[in-house]
Each structure stands twice: as structure tokens, then as C-alpha cells.
Amino acid sequence: PESADLRALAKHMFESYNKAFPITKAKSRAIMAGKTGDKSPFVIYDMNSLKAGEERIKFKQTPLQEQNTEVEIRIFQRCQFRSVEAVREITEFAKSIPGFINLDLNDQVTLLKYGVHEVIFSMLASLMNKDGLLIAAGQGFMTREFLKSLRKPFCDIMEPKFEFAMKFNGLGLNDCDIAIFIAVVILSGDRPGLINVKPIEELQDSILQALALQLKISHPDSPQLFAKLLQKMTDLRQIVTEHVQLLHTIRKTEAEMSLHPLLQEIYKDLY
């Protein structure tokens, strides 16, 4: 394709990204820097601030029987609710990728099943710095140390995501770069069980060209950025595999834990 077409594709992906995702990297960085004019996020760093935060932060969903459940389970349930929301947002974004909805419907399902968590962990990096992460659409900031202080196995959930995020954030991507990158991730033609790989690879190929051009324009001083970013796709698969293993452990050891049906569908026979 001509470079004008590739720029139009990049612009389109950036627009659908802004439409599909309520919190962007730019917004998140502005909140963390205290530059939004809104209230600064409520910091959760121990059990007392967690209790205060739970009263102060307006969560989108309040799970039932919350009061009596253990802290770790409550936090985990909120992560689940947010993940389900994210799957819905990512689905909307995927549908906006030119050609995606014309793929075999079963292949669309497979691409989402394998892609959503890689997208979630890429985008989670935008909400993180080395000390913690923004929660509840920027109303709160939960510290990394607090998450590490939770009891086993819950203390092991977020730490690998922070480690990945620090490396990923080091690439200095902007929201437009990320938008095109996650489209590339979704359109991976090597997911298990795909029926018709060729049209997926063709779609991914034009998005890859759009990404290469976008990075060249927005980061002229980092000629290796495209290659470095593609390497991150391997790290993402590793993180998802470990995440799935950890969830299996949690499901076995935590009798109180229930897994949302949508997440059950995604995790079932994943890796």
C-alpha cells in the first residue's frame, strides 16, 4: 500500500482506540503527574487506606457479599470485573480493524480468545509506573508494595506485569503507536485452531506496515524500535502463559473464588 493509505490506517486505528478505551496512556500519565485539574488519585498502600479507598472510590460495579469477603478475594474480584470490561472494549476495537468482521466468525473468536490478555497486559503498562498502578479509571493508585504484601498466591499476580510494564514503557510509545501495536497482536495468524489463516496474515501485514511507518515518523531517533516492539510480543505470550497457570492454582486452592463465565470461556483450553 501507498504510504498515504498506511497513514490513513494508522489514523483510523488511533481513532477507534480512543473511542473504545476510556483511559489512554496520555490521560493516565496526566493523572499521575497531577496535571488534570481533577482530584489526585487516592493512594492505597496498606489495609487502612484500602478500607478508606473502598468507601471513597466510586467503583463501576459493587460485587455482592463484599463486606465479609477477604481483602485478597475482593481485590481479585475487582480485577476480574475490570478484565471483563476490558474484553468488551477490546472486542469493540477489534471489530473496527478493517476486514476483521469479514473473517470467519470462529476465527474472530479464536483471535480474541488468544489476543485479549496480551492486549490487556500491553495496555496495563500505560497505567503503571515503577511504584504502582492507577485503578478505577484513575480515581485510585494502588502501590506495587501493597500488592506484593498480599498473601500467597495473590501477591504473585501483579509483579510479573510490573516487570513487563517497566520494560515496555521504556520503549516510550505513544497512544497511536500502542493502538496499531495491539491491532497487530490481535491479528496473529499462528493462534491454535484458526481455520483460515491467510486473510488474517494479509490484514496483519498491512497493519504491520502501518506500524513500521508510524514508528519511523513518531520516533525518528529510534530506528530499532519496530524490531524491539515485535520482540515484546514473545514476552507477552510468556506473561499470559504464566498468568493462566497462576489462575489454575488459584482456582484449585481458593474455594471461595468464582471466575466470571466470560473469563472461564477464554481460559478454557487456552494453553
Binding site: 468482521i101 466468525l105 474472530q108
Partner: peptide, 20 residues
Amino acid sequence: KEKHKILHRLLQDSTSPVDL
């Protein structure tokens, strides 16, 4: 198809509730 019925539904109509 049965195995992924919520994903199917989201793909066809993402405005339908997911029963959070």
C-alpha cells in the same frame, strides 16, 4: 460455538450485557 457463546455474542452485539 457453545464453548464460546459470550465471545460470540460480544462479537455480534457488544451492547448486550455481560452480567457483571
